[in-house]
Structure formats: C-alpha cells, structure tokens
C-alpha cells in the first residue's frame, strides 16, 4: 500500500499542481474565448477571418500533440518553455478555441430586438455589447463553460506526459516504485471525479447568480454532475426574427 510519506511528498503537491494547471489554463482559455469569440462577431471581415482561422486551427488540433510540439519542437525555435507553461499554453489555446464558439453562439442568441432597443437609445456598438449583449449572454454561457471546464480538468492529466508533476505524474511514479497499481489509479480516478464534481457545484452557484442578475430563476438540473448538450460543445445560435414590416 502507498506509504504516507510518498503521499505527502508526491500526491498532495500533485493535486495542487493539477489545480494550478486547471486554473491557469482556464484563465488563458477564458481570455482567448472572449477575445476570439468577440472578434468573430466583428464588422471587419479581416478580423473575423483571422479569428476564424485561429478557431479552425486550434479546434482541429489535438491538445496532446500540440503539447508535445511546444515541449520538444518550440525550444529549437529558441523558445524554451518551462514544462508547466508549455502544458498550460497548449491547454489554454485549444480549450480557448472551443470557448470562443460558446461566446460567439451565446452572443448570437441574444434577441436581435435587444440590439434594436440599444440602437433606439443611441448606445454605441461597444456600449451595447458591454451593457446589453454580454450581460444577457453570460447566463447562457455558464452551463457550456462548465462542461468545457471539466473537459479541461480532464485534459490537465496530459501535462504528466511532458514531466509536469501533477497528480497523474505522481500516480505513474508510484506505479514504477511500488507496482501497487490498483489503489493508485483507482484513487486518481476518484480524485478527478471529486474535482469535477466540485467544479460543477461551483458553476451551479455561478449560474444561479447569473440568472438572478437578469431576474430569472434557474431550473433544477441533473443530480450527479452535468448535462451535455446533444450537439457536443457547440451552442446553437438561436434565431429570433425581429419583425420586418408593418
């Protein structure tokens, strides 16, 4: 059975590294998600185009291959990344691309009539985005962001492959040292599940706050963790027509 010494020297710090990688990659991913997501709604075609290329490239990319590439190939271009930052970057860049689709879709789903009301009150485009469209799109973004965040948490296990000492890395070390595979990997799986559960609980609170902020009460959802939308990660852009002629 695993010694308590090993647990405290490798496993506990590993849990902390997993949390750190998740938080940093989520922060980078969120920045990219909003940056690229907003750019994809730009009026300028060149901005839309560049953001679209980013989206297609990083969505098509395998996170693990990208991570390997950043770890092994990028240094030869003169960019030596600390393993942890190679991992965080690869995760943030790919999951940010998925997130941009959530941002774009939720913004597109804000009723066009709301934009028109903003025009009628003479808001600028940026004021409309900041005061009307983003606050209304935000509650719609939270559940898909929750799913994405859990995918990201699961993705952080990949950093163990490029020698970042997260909890999966600790588990692999322990296997090499003791051959006690059953308790090690069982514990690992349970730990990830618990972290995913905590994230879902936290995001549930965020969702409730967000909905309350627009005067809605959220409906109760699934009992264990989360509901996936049947269309994978994409958000369906609702199209509500805004009345044309008299």
């Amino acid at each position: 059975m695993m010694s308590s010494e090993f647990f405290t020297t490798w496993f506990l710090p590993g849990i902390w590294v997993t949390i750190q990688v998740t938080v940093y990659a989520a922060a980078l991913g969120a920045a990219i998600a909003f940056g690229i997501g907003l750019a994809r709604t730009s009026r300028l075609w060149i901005v839309r185009f560049v953001a679209g290329v980013y989206f297609e490239v990083f969505r098509g990319m395998s996170a693990l291959v990208l991570m390997f590439w950043m770890f092994f190939a990028l240094p030869l271009f003169g960019w030596q990344l600390v393993p942890m930052w190679a991992g965080v970057s690869a995760l943030g860049l790919t999951y940010g691309a998925y997130g941009s689709e959530i941002v774009r879709g939720s913004l597109a789903a804000v009723a066009p009539a709301q934009r028109e009301a903003g025009v009628a009150l003479n808001f600028t485009r940026w004021q409309r985005l900041r005061l009307i469209e983003l606050p209304q799109a935000w509650p719609e973004m939270v559940p898909p962001f929750n799913n994405l965040l859990i995918e990201l948490l699961k993705g952080t296990a990949l950093v163990s492959v490029i020698t970042v000492a997260d909890m999966t890395f600790a588990g692999n070390l322990l296997r090499l040292g003791t051959n006690e595979t059953t308790p090690v990997y069982s514990l690992l799986l349970v730990l990830y599940f618990v972290l995913a559960f905590l994230i879902t609980r936290g995001m549930r609170v965020v969702e409730r706050k967000a909905k309350a902020g627009i005067g809605q009460t959220p409906q109760k959802t699934g009992f264990i963790t989360r509901k996936l939308s049947a269309r994978g990660e994409s958000v369906q852009a609702g199209s509500q027509s805004a009345g044309g002629m008299g």
Partner: peptide, 25 residues
C-alpha cells in the same frame, strides 16, 4: 422609439433601464 415587444433590458432593473442611456449616452 417604443417597441411592440417592449424590449426592456432583462439584465437591468426598472430604474436602470431608464437611467442607463441618459447616463452613458
């Protein structure tokens, strides 16, 4: 303009629906 479907901003309370544009615009 006043719209058929009101188009109030659901993310703002009544007071702020009215004051937001006078303040920012």
């Amino acid at each position: 303009m006043v719209f058929q479907q009101f188009n109030l901003f659901p993310n703002m309370k009544v007071l702020r629906n009215i004051t937001e544009a006078p303040v920012t615009v």
